[in-house]
Amino acid sequence: MLNTEKIAVMTKAAIYEGKEGLQDDRVISYFETDYLLKGLFGSLITYTVAFFVIFALYAAYHFEDLVLLLYSDALTPFLWSALRIYLTCLVPFLLVTFLIYLVRYHQTREKVSSYRRMLETLADGNEEEKA
């Protein structure tokens, strides 16, 4: 005789494993702090590359002015301004990254906990059947 409740739980567990299980497993294999730091470090690298790309566009737009700047005393203040802009935009970007990764980690942990509860339910059911 088929145990329909057991089949329902097994189906849900199998669907989870097939769709998100592998990806969630990779996320949950990190400690929370490590996962957040990994995300922040990746964001730092991509943001820095993006900043240099935008700076290159700016340089192309103000090409003649920048060439004159190279031979004047205003080069150092210009570079300090560029650094200030870099840091000013970096902080909110890292904050957004932090929030996204934090929410993602907690949501993944909930899903994995729910999956483990399903497995415990199945294990309890198996023990009852054997008894």
Binding site: T46, Y47, A50, V53, I100
Partner: peptide
């Protein structure tokens, strides 16, 4: 290419 690269760097990495 610059526009697509910026989209990739700032959005797709998430």
């Amino acid at each position: 290419a610059v526009v697509l690269l910026l989209i990739f760097l700032l959005y797709f990495r998430f």
